[in-house]
Design a protein around this nucleic acid. Structure first.
Length: 589
RNA sequence: CGGGGUGUAGCUCAGACUGGUUAGAGCGCGUGCCUUGGGAGCACGAGGUCCGCGGUUCAAGUCCGCGCACCCCGACCA
């Protein structure tokens, strides 16, 4: 490809509105272009990268026997109503009506559709197991899209669905998909962490997320520094505590004036105490009862953990609930409410002495309270884990990492097959619901993830299998006939050797060409300049390309100083050699 | 949904507070010269519904009202 004929309009300036590096680089490198909030076009260069990611996913899906389909992006409401998700996913759905007034939705995901398809055709155990997947556009009307492709409202996703006669069979497929995902991310050059995860409204009980560690993400996971166990902070538990608790009502209670000071943060400043000297009290309604949850001031309640204890039907109390139980929002505390609410505490409250709690009176707190002065009905693990919390597997310490979710695999069971009537006749002649799994990968998001991994502002680095071209050929002075002719010759040789090359044949200054090379993230750069009079050209490596490789390989392939001078006759063999070595690392069966 | 910000040339932004000729800069774009190993230089030039609608005024990019879009923080998020 000749640069002069390509669609490539790079930007020297950092775009406004791009607040993370990958977003900025993808815009500046002319990979994508924004149409509306969270809605992007893939431009020729970006689409090349997308297709490369796409292809690797297809290859690995093929390898586990999954069959590719393409389902509609527009769905009528009926299937969604059958599973109840017309309501439960309403907050992210783009809904509209067709000209007949039929309710429609832009597909947020495709469990309903694929299950419907399978239910029409698969009637016997003889046709199972079955794996179907697609790479398709998904629509989610996120309230706040951000980070470019990281959280978009229209995005590309790979979704695989598996269908089984038994849980054992699902388990085996789940394992295979897990391994396929590991291979996919390895081939893409993305270091992923697999973490146990919450399966959420999609259903099922087991799930794993494939995360990359980056500040640009929107999730967090906890990893044990000792045994390596890791889990999303949505579900990460801590080691159970031995509780030996006896209620000792306090005789002489001390109250202090805290005018208009209610949040822990404000109290810390006002009283000059530590966050851990406070116990927060959070009031919930559940099944007509009130539950007061106590938690140490530095911690946050994990609603998912709480729902295990309260059931799914609970909500935060509102203003008038506080009045009903004789308390005040902002100053609620456990002492004095013993008869009106059930009091449960997070483990973090256990053993605390000389703490401060709300006095159920506007502008007042109680001080010098011990944990056993509070009537607590039970202690549970209810908090979102922090650094230093104790791993339930080995007693080691957790560390929390910011992360971006690239893949998520679920065991669904019969959540969709039953309501949508996907049944099969088993060997024993009985009709049973098909057991399902589903497995997603955020394909477009992967582009952002790779850029976040290895690039810096204004200088992108793609990995071997994702780089839009393998070599950028730069001719310093295209008016120099010798430089031009040698370049053209090398360009043709590379094409004939199936090495993807973009030739910067523009009449631009050298600086412009080098900056663009770095911005668009091509691994190798071959420079044809004045030294061509001595038959010498220079081969340069992208500044961070080595980081995308295993260290030993990087040492072997990449010269010190990232650059080497070559005789023209050595160019093709050298590039081919690097290409073959990398291909072996990333694409060997 | 709450809080905040922004909207002027293709891009990044000044001008607005205190209304007043023909609305500016840098970059980019075009032409010519020069230059060709890290976004070079000189000259000339093209390019604007100042987000939209309404209002105040002799006069609105500027003031007022309504709306829209985009961005940020929070809430939300298979």
């Amino acid at each position: 490809m000749r640069y002069s004929r390509y669609f490539l309009f790079t930007s020297k300036e950092k775009p406004t509105g791009a607040h993370c590096m990958s977003h900025s680089n993808l815009l500046r490198g002319c990979f994508v272009s924004q149409l509306a909030a969270g809605i992007y076009s893939f431009l020729p260069l970006g689409f090349r990268v997308l297709k490369k990611v796409w292809k690797i996913i297809e290859e690995e899906m093929d390898r586990i026997g999954a069959l590719e389909v393409l389902m509609p992006a527009i769905h009528p409401s009926d299937l969604w109503e059958k599973t109840g998700r017309w309501e439960t996913m309403d907050n992210v759905m783009f809904k509209f009506q067709d000209k007949k007034g039929t309710k429609m939705v832009l597909g947020t995901t495709h469990e309903e559709i694929i299950t419907d398809i399978v239910s029409k055709f698969v009637k016997t155990y003889k046709n199972l197991p079955l794996l179907l997947y697609q790479i398709q556009v998904k629509f989610r009307d996120e309230i706040r899209p951000k980070g470019g492709l990281i959280r978009a409202r229209e995005f590309i996703m790979k979704d695989l669905y598996s269908f089984h006669t038994s849980w054992e069979c699902l388990d085996r497929t789940y394992e295979e998909v897990y391994k396929a995902y590991i291979r996919i991310f390895k081939r893409l050059g993305i270091p992923v962490e697999v973490v146990e995860a919450f399966s959420g409204p999609i259903g099922g009980d087991v799930s794993h997320e494939f995360m990359v560690i980056t500040e640009a993400g929107e999730d967090k996971f906890a990893k044990c520094t000792l045994c390596g166990y890791s889990a999303s902070t949505e579900i990460a538990q801590i080691q159970k505590k031995q509780i030996s608790y006896q209620y000792k009502p306090i005789g002489n209670i001390q109250k202090i004036h805290t005018p208009n000071v209610s949040s822990v943060k404000q109290l810390v400043d006002f009283l000059n105490r530590k966050e851990t000297d406070f116990v927060k009290s959070i009031l919930y309604r559940s099944g007509g009862k009130y539950i007061l949850v106590l938690i140490r001031g530095d911690k946050e309640v994990n609603d998912i953990k709480l729902s295990k204890f309260l059931g799914s039907d609970f909500s935060l109390a509102e203003e008038d609930d506080f009045t009903k139980i004789g308390s005040v929002k902002g100053f609620i505390g456990p002492i004095g409410l013993e008869n009106k609410v059930q009091i449960v505490a997070d483990y973090s409250v256990y053993g605390l002495k000389n703490i401060i709690v709300g006095a159920n009176e506007k502008d007042y707190h109680y001080v010098e309270i011990d944990y056993d002065n509070i009537l607590i009905s039970d202690f549970y693990d209810l908090a979102i884990v922090n650094d230093g919390d104790v791993c339930p597997k080995c007693g080691g310490e957790y560390k929390i990492y910011p992360s971006l979710e690239l893949g998520h695999i679920f065991k669904l069971g019969t959540k969709y097959s039953e309501p949508l009537g996907a049944f099969f006749t088993d060997k024993d002649g009985k009709v049973k619901p098909i057991i399902m799994g589903c497995y997603g990968i955020g394909v477009s998001r992967i582009l952002s993830a790779i850029v976040e991994m290895y690039s810096s502002e204004g200088s992108t680095t793609w990995t071997f299998n994702t780089a839009p071209f393998f070599v950028e050929l730069i001719t310093i002075n295209v008016d120099d006939e010798n430089q031009y002719n040698v370049s053209e010759n090398i360009y043709n040789q590379l094409i004939n050797s199936d090495i993807e090359v973009i030739w910067d044949d523009r009449k631009e200054s050298a600086g412009v060409k080098f900056k663009d090379w770095e911005l668009i993230g091509i691994p190798l750069c071959l420079v044809v300049g004045a030294k061509i009079s001595r038959n010498i050209v220079e081969l340069k490596f992208n500044p961070r390309f080595g980081k995308t490789l295993p260290e030993s390989e990087a040492r072997k392939l990449i010269p010190e100083g990232l650059s080497v001078e070559l005789d023209v006759s050595e160019v093709l063999p050298t590039i081919k050699n690097v290409y073959t070595s990398l291909n072996k690392i990333y694409n060997e069966k």
